[in-house]
Design a protein around this nucleic acid. Structure first.
Length: 317
DNA sequence: AAGCCACGCAACCGCCAAGGT
DNA sequence: TACCTTGGCGGTTGCGTGGCT
């Protein structure tokens, strides 16, 4: 496959376009259409390569281009589509009339990506970052959000996702505790529920700390946040390991998230960066997933759309 | 007022796929 | 089938601008 000789051709101008060049290009295309981009510059009297002309036209001069700030709706659309399509800017642009892929790409790189990072999300996966300590300050701030306190149950998708980030931190902490407990137990396979429960006690401490740390100057008064409580099933000790492998130190068991009475179960995130599950499975990395909610048992399940409303984005800008 | 720095955005670069010869 | 041309895409660069010290 050959490479197209382009702007490296001698004598062709590069750099910013002048109004005169723009006018020549617009005039020519309006009269004749662009036709062959390669032939266009000479026909239009431009000392540019065809590629440069095409980019100038498609990204700037096209009459149907919408300029100006992105609306909250457009912002949301980009977030949603990016969570599905990734960096397929041209595909995203097809859903935003008047916006170019270049413009969307720039907007993503200069605004949205930073916002997601600040909010504790991985901008590529749209998942809460799994680095607990890196996201802790943010999570503490989140825990102080009045909206989180007031919005219960999870009637707002974005709030729910943020709550999941908090929940994720809790689960990671839980994982650490479990591993510590397993280490303390040595090779013993009898991790009783009561001992695990004892280890879980600091979870509430963490929760309360997250509620009370003065991380935001204007943070509302600390109050209880109704996160779904982690529950260790009473039949915990009877849970079968999810894997037949026996060379792991950790025991495999299942932690269910349970919503409040009428609240549907909240999809949670595996603390081990496993695919998100409806029923969290804390198991050994690489274990086969045996829960019915685990998609097709191997393929990456579909991550919920990231729906972040403008006030929320502004809040953390 | 001058220098520095961060940011936004237009433009370029390099690669790829499709279609033509 | 191999090569070439063209259009398109995503990543990156560099310049202009505004804010801060």
């Amino acid at each position: 496959m050959g490479r197209s000789p382009c702007c490296d051709e001698n004598g062709l101008k590069k750099g910013p376009w002048t109004p005169e060049e723009d006018q020549k290009l617009v005039d020519y295309i309006q009269k004749h259409g662009h036709g062959s981009w390669r032939a266009l510059p000479k026909l239009a009297g431009l000392n540019r390569c065809g590629k440069s002309c095409r980019l100038r036209w498609t990204n700037y001069l096209r009459p149907d281009i919408k300029r100006g700030k992105f609306s909250p709706e457009e912002e949301q659309t980009i977030l949603n589509l990016h969570s599905i399509l990734g960096n397929k800017w041209s595909a995203i642009a097809t859903h935003l009339p008047g916006r170019t892929d270049n413009e969307i790409k720039n907007f993503w790189n200069t605004h949205l990506k930073k916002k997601l990072i600040q909010m504790g999300f991985d901008p590529m996966t749209h998942r809460p970052r799994t680095d607990f300590f890196a996201t802790l300050p943010h999570l503490i701030a989140l825990a102080n959000l009045k909206e989180l306190v007031d919005n219960n149950p999870w009637d707002d998708h974005s709030m729910r996702l943020q709550a999941e980030a908090v929940q994720n931190a809790k689960l990671q902490y839980l994982q650490c505790l479990i591993q510590s407990a397993a280490a303390m137990a040595g090779n013993s396979t009898t991790n009783s529920p009561s001992s695990i429960a004892a280890e879980l006690e600091p979870m509430s401490l963490l929760n309360s700390q997250m509620m009370t740390m003065p991380s935001m100057p204007s943070a509302p008064a600390p109050a209880a946040v109704h996160l779904p409580e982690l529950q260790i099933p009473s039949s915990f000790e009877q849970q079968q390991p999810l894997s037949n492998e026996t060379n792991h130190q950790e025991s495999s068991f299942i932690v269910f998230s349970q919503g409040e009475n009428s609240t549907p179960r909240t999809p949670l995130i595996s603390p081990l960066s496993l695919p998100p599950l409806t029923d969290i499975s804390i198991s050994n990395p690489g274990d086969a997933c045996s829960t019915s909610s685990c998609g097709d048992g191997g393929a990456m399940p579909f991550w919920p759309e990231l729906l972040l409303d403008e006030p929320f984005l502004t809040e953390f800008a």
